[in-house]
Structure formats: C-alpha cells, structure tokens
Design a protein around this nucleic acid. Structure first.
Lengths: 325, 325
DNA sequence: TTGTAAGCGTTATCAA
DNA sequence: TTGATAACGCTTACAA
C-alpha cells in the first residue's frame, strides 16, 4: 500500500504538504492541493491510522466495560452511548466482561496503553479504588453511583427510586411485599436491598427474607422464582422486581397458576422496557438511554482537558403507573 | 510516561533486550530479564500499543458491523462472536449501523486504514460488490448468504428453514397462513419471502398478501400486527413469524382477544429465543451463537494467510416443537 | 546472548 | 506558502 511519502513524490510536493491536505490545514495552494488529491485518488491511498495515533497520542476510541450486551438494561445504556459517540466520530470498543475482573482490567489497561482515549464503565465488579488508580491515564466514567470518587459518574438514585416504589405499594394497601433482584452483590443492587430493608424497618411492615429472590436475570428466572414463591405456605401480595423482563417472565408464568394481577399479586417493575409496556406493567423508568448519552458527553469533554475534575451527574427516576398495581 | 528507551537505560540493557522481555522471546539471560522486569515494575511501564500496531501491521482488533445491538437476533450472534474472540485475545470494535451505509463503510475503511485486522458483517445494507472491493485489505465475513462471493460467509438457509416451517403447518392441516416479517428488503428476509411465495404456489394454497405484515421488529409490532389482522373479515388460522419476540408480543396481545392458541390461531416462530421458550412457542432454531462463533473462527484463520480463499459455512436449522402449533 | 541501527507512516517544529 | 527533518515508541534484521 502506498504511503504518504509516495504520494508526495508522485504529486511532486513534500510530505508536509500532503499531510496538510489530509488534515485540511490552511496554507496549501489550490494547485498543490489538487495535485495531491488527484494522486491520492489515483493510488487509492488512505492513511495508516496507527501512525496517526502514535504521533498524536489520540485514537478517537472509547472503551466500554459492559457485563453482558444481551440484557436490556445494558444494551439500552449502550444504545444511548452509541447515539452520541458515533456522530461525534468516536468509536466504541466494547468489552463484554460478565463481571470478570481480568476482562475489566484489560479495558483499563488499554487506556494505559494509549489504545483508547477514555473508558465508560457501565457496570463493574471492580472496587472503586482500583478504578481510581487508572484515572491518571485518562478519563473514566461509571454508570453507577460510586460516591464522590476521583472519577466521574452518571447514576440513578436506586435507593430513592426503590423506596418510591415501595411507598407506592404501601399507599395502595399492600403489606406483604416480595422482592426479585439480580446480582446479590452489586453497587446498584446493594442500594436497592438497603432501601428494601430500611423501608420495612421504618414503616413497621414485617420483612420476609424468604420472599427475596436473588439471581433473577432473565424472563425464565422470573418464572422460576414465582414457582418457588407459590410453593410457600405464606405468600406475598405484591412484588417489586428489578428488571421488567424478569417481571414479564413472572407474569407469563402467573397465568398457569391462575393468579390474577393485581388482585392476587401486584407487581412493580424496573427499567421501563418495551415488554413491560406491552404487558401493562407498572414500572420505574430510569432513563437508560440518557445514562449512556450523558456518560459519553462527560468523557468527551474530559478528553480535551489535561486535569479534568470528576463530574457527578444524577438522573431522575419516574414511576409509570399502568395496570399491575 | 516512560518508554522502552528509558527502561533500557535504567535497567542497563539495550532496547532490544527490553523488547525481548516484553515479548517473551528466548535468548535473554535471567539476570537481565530480572533487571528489566524490575525496572518496568518500578516505573509502572506499559507499551504504547499504537507503536506496536504501526510496526507489526496488526492490531488484534476485529470490526463488527451490526445494525442494532438491542435485538436478540443480533445480540445473540454478537455474544457467540465475543465468546470466541475474547479468549483468543482479539478485541471487538462494534459499530451499530442501523443499516446506514455510511456507518457500514466506515468499518470497512478501518480495515483499509489498518485499524482492524478483519471485519465481521452481521447484517448489512451494502451490496455484495461493495464489500468485495474491500477484501483486498483484509478478511471479511458476513453472517448472511451472499452467494459465492469473494468474501466468506456463515449462513442459515432461510429459504429451506422457512419452507420447512410452512410444510409443518400444512401437515398439521393449516391452509390459511399469515406471515410477519421484519425488513421488507433484506438478504435473509428476501429468501424467506421467496419461500413463502413459492410454497403457496407449489402447494396450491391460496396466498393472502394482506396477511403479510412487514416491519415487525419488536414485541409491540407483533401486538399491533395482530390488531390489524383481527380487524379483517377473513383471518388466517396460522402464522409464521420471523422473530420469537415478535411472536411473543402477538401471543400476549392475543389474550385480550380471547384467541386460543393453537386452536384459533397456530403460531410458529423463528430464532429460538428465551421468551419463546417460556411461552411454549414452536419455533425454528437457527444457531445464532454458533453463527457468531464460526464467523470469528473464519476471520481468525484468514488473518494469518496472505491470500485466503473465501469460506462458505452453512449452518443447520432445527424445528422445535412446542405447544403453539 | 546481546546490542546497533534501520525502519513503520505519520505529524510537529522550525527555518526558509 | 513550502519543505527538511526530527520526533512518536516500538520491532527486527544483522552484526558481534
């Protein structure tokens, strides 16, 4: 493949001039510019971007740490990210980590290696301290609340949002509340668990630990959790479920038990997913698209600063009343 | 940041020796190796990968052209791709294109620019001729049948699979068949449409064009298409639906019409998605994970050849009988 | 087993 | 407005 030197030679100019044409710099006469462009065309030339990255110290790429692209929660954030990043001419390097720390560190190491200009951590198993150590190499944004750390974050107040949902159930008269959750140990999940505990304590409603089901990640997990619940002697009359798709699985399974919703069992979901809309699921919207979009905007701003201070951006939640409560 | 020269200077060796240590080459004495490693540790050094990419002409990255990560069909292929690529130490550069040719060309241009070592095209709006032009710059694999082109492909026989599904419906006694499809103009979708037409012609079953619903991409589209269908005077007694999630949306909506499945309406889906499993949806499995995995394996093999011949890998489909037919 | 030096293909600097 | 030439940070002949 031709390189810039060859273009220069054939066009009868210096490599500097070719470079200027390539980068739309001023101070190139129309004649030379035309000659260069013609030669580029003729030789079907394009730059070797690795050389550009080397000398400029920039790559125009953002690394994305994401546990699983298959789940709505993550893919919606990613979608928001992509919608902002691609028009801004940034590429996204995706790393699906399944919460494996080695994989997550690999992306952070890419920042160190200069392969990427910044990192967006959608969800992680890493400790905040570990992430902080990498901020020396470039901007890092997480999509979860990590407190006032030395890196930026865009986050939803999971504690308040969950509390709001529980309060809503209580106001509607429900006193026996079950809870389906994804990961047991996770930043956002931990906040929701705390809200669940604190709410019961403060409102004096007795908490049934056996009605808390962890590891509900898929529709089928939701269905299976209902099976377990319905084998119990005492059952809840309402459920709060992290993830509308899990709630959807449960609702579908509920039919075979002839459970009427909300008469026998009220349900409130989380994420405002399309499947929940279809099922009339009452849910809490948490602005997933905006989360991704905001994360990119922060990274983008910070890439051009030399010692950026971390930004903490809180997103609002919103209860969407439909027909399951 | 420190560079290889500085490491060499401080460790008291040449840059070559440092490079050898970095790349685990033989012929380095234990003493020097130790000294180099100690210095690397001490200065918290890592390579600038852009320089490595420049000199080696490799980047260890694969570009992925994917219309939308949010849809199961695509994300499942991506998942399969990631499962093979990441352990092989390849990174995936994801470009969500929404079938915009400019975006798709951008990925192919990255191949030209040496930013990536190969391209996997999950689904595309580009003409095969356009793609062929880029094979000069590196290996390209598509996940759809493009005929015997100058690039590789992993594909499902959509025509045969769809025919199989239609035949199955016919054998079960259904003669009034409707059809929900995603994109009207698409490579795989075109094959399915042709199968639908040919099947009716050959079997003498009258085809009702009004029962063909295009642009069914989401659960809600499936529900809406049922609405339209149920306003008609004459209705089908069976449906073949490209995409289990669309079928799922329809099944959920069917409840409010009190439609019994399969007594009033039989349904056969496509993709074997989890939501379909939950609903007992009869479907056609098309090995999406394997499709992604195979695509990577082909790319991976071809990266090391200098003039690789295209590989055409056909995947098997399988009808999964459940309860909706 | 080690080191010198020549690339890789760009952009940046500085002088003309 | 132009062009030599020096970076950028690494790998790899080739020589020792």
């Amino acid at each position: 493949m031709a390189n810039i030197k060859e273009i220069a030679r054939i066009a009868g100019v210096s490599v500097t001039t070719v470079s200027r044409v390539l980068n739309n710099h001023p101070y190139v006469s129309p004649q030379k510019r035309a000659a260069v462009l013609a030669t580029i065309e003729q030789l079907n030339y394009t730059r070797n971007m690795n050389a550009v990255h080397l000398i400029t110290g920039r790559t125009g790429a953002i690394g994305v740490v994401i546990p699983n692209i298959n789940y709505y929660y993550f893919s919606a954030i990613l979608e928001g990210l992509a919608r902002e990043a691609l028009p801004a001419k940034y590429r996204l390097i995706l790393c699906q980590t399944s919460y494996r720390p080695e994989e997550e560190l690999q992306v952070l190491d890419m920042l160190r290696n200069k392969e990427i200009d910044g990192v967006v951590i959608v969800s992680t198993a890493l400790k905040p301290e570990t992430i902080e150590a990498y901020t020396a190499y470039g901007p890092v944004v997480t999509c979860q609340d990590s407190g006032e750390r030395r890196f930026s974050s865009v986050y939803l107040e999971h504690y308040a949002a969950f509390w709001h949902g529980l309060q809503y159930l209580r106001n509607k008269g429900y006193r026996k509340i079950g809870y389906f959750e994804g990961r047991q140990h996770g930043s956002s999940s931990g906040l929701r668990q705390k809200a669940f505990g604190d709410f019961h304590r403060e409102s004096g409603i007795p908490l049934h630990p056996e009605w808390i089901m962890f590891d509900c990640a898929t529709e089928e997990d939701g269905a299976a959790a209902l099976d377990r619940l319905w084998q119990m002697e005492e059952r809840p009359d309402a459920l709060i479920i992290a993830g509308d798709h899990v709630a959807a699985g449960l609702m579908i399974a509920a039919r075979s038990y002839k459970i009427r919703i909300p008469e026998d069992l009220a349900i409130i979901g989380f994420d405002n997913q399309p499947i929940g809309r279809l099922l009339g699921l009452t849910t809490i919207d948490n602005q997933l698209f905006e989360m991704g979009a905001a994360a990119f905007r922060i990274i983008h701003d910070q890439i051009n600063e030399d010692a950026p201070s971390p930004v903490y951006r809180k997103l609002d939640y919103r209860l969407i009343e439909r027909t399951t409560v």
